[in-house]
Design a protein around this nucleic acid. Structure first.
Lengths: 128, 128
DNA sequence: TCTTGACCTTCCAGTTACTGGAGAGATTAT
DNA sequence: ATAATCTCTCCAGTAACTGGAAGGTCAAGA
């Protein structure tokens, strides 16, 4: 499929999709007319990139994560160690996100009564 | 306290702390010699910024979130609606992070037996 | 007192990850 | 046939830092 459909399916701007080709993160085949031609697998990679980027992973992180699924010659033990270190990062992010959510929930609840403490829980926001 | 201690306590680079002053996100008082002087409250804001940025919120998101805790004249109902929309964003991120973690866990597990499927779960990676 | 070294300042240039727009060719719709 | 809508590349600009130069401040030691 052409770039616009790829962008639609992956929920990314066309510009961004083109950029990911430029930096060789997702490099589609080309048609005879020079148009990029995206496969279903390319779309999956793009969708993955959209998710991982919105979760605060850098493009280099993403490149590493994608490579886990691509490089068939890589030793399993290496794949495992990269995956495990990423899992640790993700679990740290999960904890922070949960605490951020709890803090905001408290704040929203305190608004229900339409009475809000002077400076509600900035301490909470700053983390434990 | 001076900028280096602020950076240490907030676990941010000095450069970044200075940058947040420049864009008026966290603007400390100045001492007579021109040095920035950070209060405990400034540190809390910086710590919050470090967390929120690593979770994929833009600086403008952060500015909005910080303003929830600052603008005492804002109507409670408005605070509540901003907080609630941010909570929705956070919960979406939580779900994606969990699914990413599960995918990587499966991958790491499949490596244990030192035998990995040809193209393991790229579909899972691309999200449901 | 002088000076060394670790701090602080501003300013300017470079990086990452886009984002917008110009200019030109290809394709599709009427 | 022609207008609208793609697509391409290239170049410039933005967001959020990041590094380095040039210079001011300050506490400790010779």
């Amino acid at each position: 499929m052409k770039i616009q459909q790829a962008a639609t399916l992956s929920e990314l701007p066309v510009k961004t999709v083109r950029y990911y080709d430029e930096i060789e993160l997702v490099s589609p085949d080309r048609q005879d007319n020079g148009y990029r031609f995206y496969s279903d697998k390319d779309i999956e990679k793009l969708r993955f990139l959209g998710r991982a980027r919105s979760l605060g992973f850098s493009l280099e992180d993403c490149r590493q994560l994608l490579s886990l699924y691509e490089d068939k010659n890589r030793a399993s033990s290496e794949v495992k160690s990269i995956a495990e270190s990423k899992i640790l990062e993700i679990e740290a992010k999960l904890i922070e996100l949960q605490s951020l959510r709890d803090t905001l929930t408290k704040l929203a609840d305190s608004c229900s009564g339409d009475e809000r403490p002077d400076c509600p829980i900035l301490e909470g926001l700053a983390g434990n």
